[in-house]
């Protein structure tokens, strides 16, 4: 049976993962775009991204686009797997009601 994941279950991290797994596996989203989508502050988003990156669920790619620094974020294969397991666990809890 799928298990809940404590790292992902936190509200902001759950929403971050939901947004990232919606993208295609070869796509990544810019930090600012993600911040606006989630309606959170830079600091808040940065802190949650660090936690997810440390867990290996997301990948953070810092690069330059037209000489400007850009940070792109994407879900890793492991992150996608853990997220789908988390969703399955949530659905199982709901079914057992």
């Amino acid at each position: 049976m799928a298990e809940l994941n404590e790292t992902i279950h936190q509200t902001v991290r759950l929403r971050i993962m939901a947004a990232l797994v919606t993208l295609a596996p070869n796509e990544e989203v810019e930090f600012i775009y993600l911040r606006d989508l989630l309606e959170v502050t830079d600091g808040n988003l940065g802190a949650h991204l660090r936690k997810l990156e440390e867990a290996g669920y997301i990948s953070v790619n810092k690069t330059f686009v037209e000489r400007k620094p850009r940070t792109y974020v994407s879900a890793t294969t492991d992150g996608r797997k853990v997220f789908s397991e988390h969703v399955a666990a949530l659905e199982a809890i709901l079914k057992s009601k």
Binding site: L14, A18, A19, L90, I93, L94, K97
Partner: peptide, 20 residues
């Protein structure tokens, strides 16, 4: 977690995916 918390989390996921 309780079923109601699970439901809230699933709703939040659904909303975020749709918004994205």
């Amino acid at each position: 977690i309780s079923p109601s918390e699970a439901e809230e989390a699933l709703d939040a996921i659904q909303v975020m995916m749709q918004k994205t």
